[in-house]
Design a protein around this nucleic acid. Sequence first.
DNA 1: CTGAAATTTTTTTTT
DNA 2: AAAATTTCAG
Length: 704
Amino acid sequence: MRYDQLTDSQRRAVFHIEGPLLVLAGPGSGKTRVITYRIAALIDSGVRPYNICAITFTNKAADEMRQRVFALGTAAGAHISTFHSLCVRILRRYAAQAEIRSNFSIYNKTDQSRCIKQAVKDCNLDTANFRPARMLDAISTLKNKLIDVAQLKADADDFFSQTLAKIYGRYQQILSEANAVDFDDLLMRTASLLQNCSGICTELGERFKFLLIDEYQDTNHAQYKIAKALVSQHSNICATGDPDQSIYRWRGADIRNILAFENDWPEATIVKLEENFRSTPNILEAADRLISFNENRKQKKLIATRPQGSDVVISTVEDELQEAEAVALRVKELSDEGASLNDMAVFYRVNAMSRVLEEAFIRNKIPYQIVRGVEFYGRKEIRDLLGYLKVLVNPNDEIALLRVINTPARGIGKTTIDKVRAYGSAHNITLFEALEKAAGIDSLSKAPKAKIAVFVSLIKQFKKDTEAKVAPLAQRVFVESGLQQALQVLGIDGLDALENVNELINSAAQYDTQTEEPSLIDYLQQIALFSDVDSYDRSRGAVALMTLHAAKGLEFENVFIIGVEDGLLPHERSYSPHNDDEEEIEEERRLFFVGITRAKTALNISCAQYRTIRGQMLRTIPSPFLFELGIEITEPEAGDSAAQDYLHDSIAKFRPDQLVRHKTFGLGRVKVFIDMGDDSIVVVRFNTGQTKSLMVKYAGLSQQ
DNA sequence: CTGAAATTTTTTTTT
DNA sequence: AAAATTTCAG
C-alpha cells in the first residue's frame, strides 16, 4: 500500500530483488526515494536489514537515508554509510590481516603535505623540481588505480616515474611508521584486503547480501573493485547514478564504471528514470540543450512533469560586487514575496567567490550559511586540540605529536626536537619513544630534558582516560594542556577560538550520546571523514552558499549560479596544456548541468564583465556554456539600477564592537561610531594595537 | 626559543 | 590577495 505513489519505472527498480540492477536516474527523478523504497521492499521480502549495505556519497546523504528508511517504518539495522566509512569499519575489524593497527590515524591534506615534503627531502630531491602538491596528486592517482609502490617500481621506465616511485615508497613508509593512512589508502587497503584474503571476502559477501551504491558515476577504480569483490558471490548489486552528473574525474572517478555496468554484469537489469519531478520545463530545456553539447555521453531524455514556470534569467553585471548585490536584492524580493530562505541557494565554481557574496548578505542583513564544513576542522585551535587527542590514541602519529609538543609554547623548540628525532632514528624508535627516553640523550642539556619530561608525563596522564567518553576528555585536555589559558590570555582576540573549541566539545558530547559505543578512536576516525555538505542545515532559515560540487544531490526552489565566465566555468585549469582537453571541458559542462538541475522553480544565472582575480581587476569573457543554453542574455541596464547604487547613496553605519577590515591596518573592532551622514566618523582599534579615527567615506572599511 | 616581519609561493573542485 | 615559509631581532 505504501508503494502506491511510485511510477511504473520506479516500481520496476524498487521490486527488482535478486541480481544486478542498474538504475540510470536523471536529475529529479526520485532516485533517493527509489533507493529508500527498495531497502524497504528488500526487508518486506524477507531480507534481514543486517544483510543490506547501502553506500552513499556523503555522510549527510547517509544520515538522511537512514532517517528516510526509518520513517518508512522498516526495521533499522541496514548498514548505510559512505565508501570511506565502510572501509574504516572493515580495516578496523580486520586490522591484523590488513597489516595495520586499528588505532590508525587518517591523514588529511595538510598532514599528507607534511609527509610528502619529508619524503621528498628524505629522497634528497629538491621540492622545487618535485613539487609536493604534484607528487601527492600523482600518488593519489596511482592509489585510485590500485597501483602500489612495487608495481610502479616494476613499471617505471622513465626518470620521472622512477623518482616518483622512490618518493611514493618513502611516503608510504612515513605513513606506516606513523600508523596512519590517507583517504586513498582506506580504499586501496580495503581493496587489497578483499583481494588477498578470500576468507574475509566471503565473510563480508555473506554479511552484505545486498549492496546498493548511489552516485555510481563518481566511483573510482578502487571503489569499483571493492564493490565487485563484495558481490562476487551473489551479484546482488544495485547501482544508481547518472553519467551526465559525473563531476569527480579529477579525483579519480571513472565514468566507465557506470557506462560499462552491462559488461561487468551481462545479466543486469537496467531501469531508466527519465521523468523529472523537480524542475519546471524552462529549466529542464536549458539543462537539456546544454548537456547535449557533450559528445561523450549516452542519449537520455529529461521529461518534464511540472507545469511551465518562469523564464530562466541570465544577466550580465558590471563586476562581482554588483553581482553579489543583485543576488542579495533578488533574495530579499523573493523573501518578501513569501519564499523561504531555506529553499534558496547560490552556487559558484570556486570557494574564493563566497567572500563577496557574504559581504553583500551581511550588508543586506540576510541570513546565510556557507556550506564548508571541513573548514571548521582546519582551524588552528581545533587542530591543536585534536592533535592531542590523536597522540593519545596513536602515539606513533608524528604529525600530530610535532604539532602539539610545543603548543602552547613550552620551550621545546626546533633544535631540541631535531636532536630527539635524530636519536630516535638512530635507535630505530618512534619520536614518542625517544621523548620517553630523553633523559638518556647526551646531546640534550638539562633544561630541555626537564621540559620534555613534563610533556611526556602530561600525555601519559591523559592516556588513562581514553576509554571513557570523548567530550569530558577533550575538555580536560583543553584545560590541562594549557591550550585554554593560551587562548584566554589573548583576551578579545581569543574569543572566537574559545567559542570554536566549545563547539567542538559540544559536538563531541553529541557524539557521546548518539553513538552506541563511543570511543576516542572511532570519534577521531569519523570526523576525519567529515565533508563539506555534512555541515549544511536546511532548517536554519538561511540562504545556502556553496560550490557547484557541494550542490550535488540537493535541490532548491530558487537557485543562483554566479560567475559563469570563461576561465571560471569552465575553469581555466580544465584547458590544461596536456591531454584530454575535451574530456575536461565536458566535465565542466556536466558541473554546470548539475547546478542548473538543482533548481525547482527559478534559476538565475549571472556573469560579470569585470572580476577581481588574485587582487587584480580583469575584463572577463562570458562562458561559452552560456550560449549553449538557448536563452537570451540580459545586458546590464544603463544608468542607475538599484544594484549599482548601493556604494554611492548610502554611507555605511557601524556599531561598537563590530568587526571591520581595513586595507592596510587589517582587522579591527569598532569603538565609537559618530553618525554625521556623509561625514560620519568611526573610531577603530586595530589588531595591530593602534586606534584610529577614520572618515567612513574614505576609510574603505569592509564589514566582517 | 619566540614572535614578528619579510619573502616566496600558490592560486579548482573534495571523500 | 592570501597562505605558507623563511628570516630576523630580541
